[in-house]
Simulated scan of single mutants.
Amino acid sequence: MNNQNERLERSRWLCAVNMFLHILVYQCGRTEGIAVAAAGSTTNVKVGQSVLFPFSTEGNQIVTIELIFNSIIVVSWFSKHKLHELHTLYEHRIDIEEDGSIRMNNVQLSDSGLYHIKTHDMSDLKPPMYSRFHLQVFECVSKPNITAECRRNNISLSCSSIRGNEVTYSWKTLPPGGNDSCVHLGQTMEIYPLPPSESTTYTCTAQNPVSRATSDPIDLGVCSTQQPRDGRWVPALCGLSALFLIGLLIFFYKRNH
């Protein structure tokens, strides 16, 4: 009898564990890729992500809820009958959760801005309540590329990423010329290179609040900024030759006249 009770308890315990794991996996899968907007603050999200504007009715509270963006009523719904009206610009992008929260799917750059949730309790004579949400949508940055402009005395490096908004750039050195330390902030930088035997390699990182990508390294040995020692005499010799020819022409001109 005791063994049977122990088996029954073990079976119940295993069922409870399995149910907990099932719920956990379901919830994790359900909320993956969903950002929960926080009232009164800015929420950063990626293009294509979903955003949840949280709301919860209390008990049998009967309310009307409106999500407003730039004076446009995105969606309005009545909790008693679970009915809602959706703006045509947001068709197939808005879902209403069981608790009254509003989910916007596949957000785009144009969705950035200030949102209001207007709540009106139909059983109360108080004025409607408003919650403010600021949404900032970012496009993920692509892997940046470095271009080098070889000049007489220095090298101009430029870093660019073809995709992403509000991108910032930083540069790092790589061994043996450096120790992975950040040496410069900005999209461009001027380098006065060391001799070829001590050349330094650089990488550029592009990032914004939702993504980060690093370029392939570039070795400054691609540029040769040293000029031959005798090269500085070439302009002087050309000038002297020109003066000599002019002098001869003047000499013969005067002699003929």
Rank of each mutant, 00 (worst) to 15 (best):
T31F: 09
D121V: 07
V47N: 02
H116D: 08
F55E: 06
M104Q: 14
Q49N: 08
F69V: 08
K46G: 14
V45Y: 01
I73T: 15
R103P: 11
I117L: 04
I68F: 04
L89Q: 11
V74S: 06
G100F: 02
P128D: 02
S50D: 10
I72E: 15
V47A: 07
G33H: 02
R103G: 12
S101D: 05
W77A: 03
K82F: 15
T43R: 05
T57G: 15
K126W: 10
L83V: 13
P54C: 12
L52C: 13
N44K: 06
T57R: 13
H84K: 13
G113F: 05
I62Q: 10
I34G: 03
D121F: 03
S123A: 13
S123D: 13
V51E: 05
I62H: 09
S110Q: 12
M104Y: 13
F69D: 08
V51F: 02
W77S: 11
V63W: 04
N70D: 11
G40E: 00
M129R: 14
S101M: 05
G113N: 01
E66V: 01
H116P: 07
H116C: 09
S110V: 06
R93Q: 13
R30Q: 06
H84G: 12
S50F: 01
N60V: 03
G100C: 02
H120M: 11
I72D: 05
D99N: 03
D124S: 13
E32P: 00
